[in-house]
């Protein structure tokens, strides 16, 4: 699937991933699913042949993703969900 589901707090508008039960910023319990399509790879490593990136999505979310292709630190990436795995690839 294209994009990755992140969780938008209905009260303060900040996003969480993975999903929380209570918004860490404002304490609200109501979240709306939102599709995140893009992010920025801030750091990249790899383990046993799998490229792994730390990806910043907007101002609130930092997540780990599998790297698909030539992603480097600083790369703008598109995001998708591969059966639970966030995947980051060059736009």
């Amino acid at each position: 699937m294209n994009g990755l589901t992140v969780w938008l707090c209905e009260s303060c508008g900040r996003r969480s991933f993975p999903r929380r039960e209570i918004c860490p910023h404002c304490g609200c319990r109501i979240f709306a699913a939102e599709r995140a399509d893009r992010g920025t790879a801030t750091h990249v490593t790899g383990h046993r042949g799998v490229g792994i990136a730390c990806v910043r999505v907007g101002d609130d979310v930092t997540l780990l993703a599998r790297v698909d292709g030539a992603v480097a630190a600083g790369s703008e990436v598109t995001l998708r969900d591969d059966d639970g795995a966030p995947v980051a690839e060059i736009q």
Partner: peptide, 10 residues
């Protein structure tokens, strides 16, 4: 749910 599918491998 979110790291093993990558897989980060620990």
């Amino acid at each position: 749910e979110r790291l093993a599918p990558i897989p980060t491998g620990g």
